[in-house]
Design a protein around this nucleic acid. Structure first.
Lengths: 150, 150
DNA sequence: TCACGATGGTTGCAACATGCTACCGGCCAG
DNA sequence: CTGGCCGGTAGCATGTTGCAACCATCGTGA
């Protein structure tokens, strides 16, 4: 269990995000949730993760407000895990990871799953980091500032 | 050490990305690298991580092509860890995590560090997932497709 | 309503990863 | 050559993960 003990003093949003979803399985669970998985068994089969680990991760994600445990949608007495708005807000994170993986871990033509626009079945545009006025920013064009009162 | 044993058969780019940088410290190391850290001691003080763990993580990131170990830039005999192009390509991932953290882990006005456009000292525009023709996409507007030969 | 397989877990234990502390060798200033 | 900093390594305690076995509930068919 991640306890945030190491980051009590951190004011870096990246650290808090990593604290919430930075372990190996959580991001893959969230990815599967985006891909439509809802049931415990679906996650378990898809990920091949041990059930006790999955139990702990799902609980942590629910506690963290990323997933919600809701009554089953098919009328059965089971429960389902669905993304909350906070969880859905992770979409750019997943897309960024996916695009990075596509670019750097596959040889051209190597088969891999792909995220497409449902309407046109076309690949997405690559994510761009933009300034407030719309210029494309490279890492060196940015800097971290301490903000005290927003 | 992450060994990729669990994802030999995976064709999901997210899984490969998570395999490369999905542990607790790696993303924070990369974040610090974007923020200008280069030396072992800088990472160590910034993160408060045990030195043996930092050693292992840096080595893994170098092996994974995210960081490169180069001769020191200040003329000393020490070495520095700098982002490779592959590492710099993680920029949208870090920005996405940062923006998610800013939105969901801080109360309004709570102090936190902030990533700004160096030129105008302004906050960045929120990342957007766009289709090939520039429409903004929500998670439900996308689907995962299996691609066999690119 | 009873059996029985599927679902959704929990528990115990072994293996592994992490964190802390101590230590160590190379650099560098005096 | 001495002491302090930098960049590690080594040993050991502790925490986390993975595996397998077990268990309670659900759902279906008879």
């Amino acid at each position: 269990m991640v306890t945030r003990t190491r980051f009590d003093d951190s004011d870096c949003p990246v650290a808090r995000s990593v604290d919430a979803i930075g372990d190996w399985w959580s991001l893959l669970i969230v990815r599967d949730a985006f891909d439509g998985s809802r049931r415990f068994g679906e996650f378990q089969r898809s990920l091949g993760v041990a059930k006790n680990i999955l139990t702990a991760r799902l609980r942590a994600l629910v506690d963290g407000g990323v997933l919600a445990s809701v009554p089953a949608s098919d009328g059965s007495a089971y429960r389902e895990y669905v993304l909350t708005p906070k969880g859905k807000a992770l979409f750019p994170v997943i897309v960024a990871l996916r695009q990075w993986g596509e670019q750097h871990f596959f040889t051209p033509g190597e088969p891999h799953s792909e995220l497409v626009d449902r309407r046109h079945e076309q690949r997405l545009r690559a994510l761009e980091v933009l300034s407030a006025d719309g210029r494309r920013l490279e890492p060196d064009d940015t800097a971290v500032r301490k903000v005290s009162t927003g």
